[in-house]
Amino acid sequence: MDDARPARRREALELLETLEREAPFPGAVRVGVTGAPGAGKSTLLDALVRVLRERGESVGVVAVDPSSRRSGGALLGDRIRLRSRGADPGVFFRSMAARDRLGGLADATRASVLVLACVFDRVFVETVGVGQSETDVAGLSDTLVYVAQPGAGDTLQFMKAGLLELPDVFAVNKADQGAPAQRTAGELESGLGLGGAEDAGWTRPVLCISATTGSGIDALLDRLEAHREHLLARDALPARRRAGAEAFVLEGLSRRYGSFGLEALGGAEALRERLPADLDRAAFSVLRALGAEVEEALRKS
């Protein structure tokens, strides 16, 4: 899926386009997990996977590391292996580093989620919450969880940067540390109350959990379930997935061709009008077709 050689890329694209078209709806549960470095995202995933496996659900995980180095090298290192079950075919874990290549990480992430969603009951996408990667992950997930750590100023920073508008569920980790976690949860609750687009009928919950001791994990899974039911009951999931696909296509075009790409297609507004209603079932093929149009325009100009 992340092989950059042209022949392999073509094969992969064909497969992805088929998958998008044929995948059943709503299919696997897609959950995004984001938060600052050190918030305990990996440990939380480990705890979640453990509980889900006990319930008999199979789980695929894509972990995205947006950091990029001059050497091109990357250490997917502090990611300590999910300890959930020794060798368990019911769990799949793939880590990906940002690379300087066509399409960037967003393509590879979306591709991985699509593939894993065909095989596993539930798919998690994890990333460090910094800018674009978080938006990408939000577009790929039905439910986005933000993992906060107690006493950290970063939650405030995220709030200022507007990044806390995206998550649907907040989990304050390290609740075993006691008071600091309660305080952070309180700050988050009041912060969320002040602004942010409240989705009708969904009050974004703030939970205190401990990934290490496992406390609050069941409650978190309950909230994830509740959010999914909320989306399905209001028939809001298709719109959410479509919005994610739209962002993917627009981002993809501007990443590949810069502002010229969108202009060549008549600007973002006109383009949005043109995009099909079932875009989330055709994002890769639409992106490919639009790309061809832009290239055609490029040749003419």
Partner: peptide, 23 residues
């Protein structure tokens, strides 16, 4: 390995051969 440009997966200690193969 990272410094010379490789992508490195390092998952810490105490792994079984099955876990390593699965990774």
């Amino acid at each position: 390995a990272r410094d010379v440009g490789m992508e490195v997966v390092y998952e810490g200690i105490r792994l079984t051969p099955q876990e390593i193969a699965q990774s």
